[in-house]
Amino acid sequence: MKILVCISKTPDTTAKIAFTDNNTKFATDGIQWIINPYDEWYALVRAIELKEADAGVTIHLVNVGTAESEPIIRKALALGGDAAFRVNTLEEDSYFVAAQIAAIAREGAYDIVFTGKETIDYNGSSIGGMVAELLDLPYISHAVKFDLSGNTATVVREIEGGEETDQVSLPIVVSCQKGMAEQRIPNMKGIMGARTKPLTVSEPVTADILTRVASFDLPPAKAGVKLVSAEHPEELIRLLHEEAKAI
């Protein structure tokens, strides 16, 4: 059983969001880069759990990115990946990145491709579905639970106001979110072992670019809070009714 986990690099959740070059580039000065939380906490950890339950499971990681991604790839290897691929290129757009991942996935004939539900910077929620279509495989998005029995996966996915349980035969692409697994911290043995695990760097395949970021905007600043005395919460209710027209 071979699992491919897609790992992206994102600014850490407390990063200050600012832009340079006439609002066309994200200001990366002083930014701490992390593994996208959904990829690390849910996709990767669930893959590791499947390996712990069945020694016949191999976990490969893929990242589409420049050499700046190497620390997060090593961390993912320390958590429990067996080997990693890095496609050495900028992330031009979702389609371009998906085409790179699909090329690696095709080559390795994986049974399962796990992605996170979305990146916390671009919030595309797109790449998993694109990879599935490129590979002509079923895709279950927003999975909160994933179990295997032989060649059949039982996947619980989030739907509006509830959950749905699906049964699908492998191979399959799944995007993962909260519920799939619990966050882990790499241990010393993992960190040491990660240094010698194979990390293969390849050049990108040719692929189209369908979209481009023209510019960024920050939301307008709030006018400031209107404080109401704790003695008179009824005044707050009046304001919400008459001024904000929210209730």
Binding site: F19, I209, T211, V213, A214, S215, F216, D217, L218, P219
Partner: peptide, 8 residues
Amino acid sequence: AFANIAVT
């Protein structure tokens, strides 16, 4: 933040 995405 917001991004303005040009679709080509």
